[in-house]
Amino acid sequence: MDNIVEVRDLCVTFKTSEGSVYAVSNVNLDLAEGKTLALLGESGSGKSVTMKSLMRLHPPHKTQITGSIQVAGRDVLALGNRELSDMRGKDIAMVFQEPMLAFDPVFKVGDQIAEVVMRHEGCSYEAGRDRALEMMECVHIPSPRKRLDAYPHEMSGGMRQRAMIALALACRPTVLLADEPTTALDATVQIQVLLLLRELQREFGMSMIFVTHDVGVAIEVADEIAVMYGGRIVEQGPVDEVMTDPWHPYTQGLLGATVYPNMDPATRLVSIPGAPPQLYRQITECAFAPRCPHATDECHDPLPPPTQTDQRMARCIRLPEVAGALPRASV
């Protein structure tokens, strides 16, 4: 199977007034055609930074990106500005967490969708509006013809997110990046949008990378899951395997810390002591070691290469011993 996205040894460093921030270190990702990969992690783990690198959305003069990124056969890091804007929205598109901020508030939603089509396909305004209408129908916006002339503030949160998806998919991208697209939505609306994304992915045959901090959301949409911590991917594999038999102590802790339905109130949550690391220095050892219940002295030495099987990967030197050490039996 061909990989539509291949990321090798990606490092992203931001230059700030307080020094360098090593946001992403040595990330490798493969995304097969038609599959969904979830990047799961807490705030500051580097999941959104990784995503934005795929479209080169970081401010160029403050960001240093090394490694290689291939999207649909293009070497993203080698592209010039013109080629970048040819690629964005056409081969690869993004859905953001807050659609109110992603849309331009002073243009009609239908016109904003039409603009993308006109830019990439060189068609007329009328043809662009026709496509916009078609897309609004695709994402099940009620009375789509009327909504074409709505401004973003005239729509509800769930409808705006649907319109955002319509915008992202207007030029039939091969890769869709979704950055916490349901985090700002209510529970009953979140599930609607998740189901919509799954349906559209099947229909359009696209590949998807889905950033989330919510284990349940990742399980709903993903085939593969990559768990990030401290700017690194610490564990990766098929979602059902990683979620039922997590190898890395961080993944184990994350699942143990998540409240699940019908949990006995007398059960204490498995809490991970401490807080996620600051990334003001390059962390070469295991970033999770200071919080890890299994850590030994060697865990503070530089990380060896990951443990890899056909399908799964985890970065923990104590893997054989800790892999079965689930803090609780059921998920």
Partner: peptide, 11 residues
């Protein structure tokens, strides 16, 4: 509307 806890229970 709660997300599933296992891929086999997807909504």
């Amino acid at each position: 509307a709660l997300p599933a806890l296992h891929p086999k229970d997807r909504k």
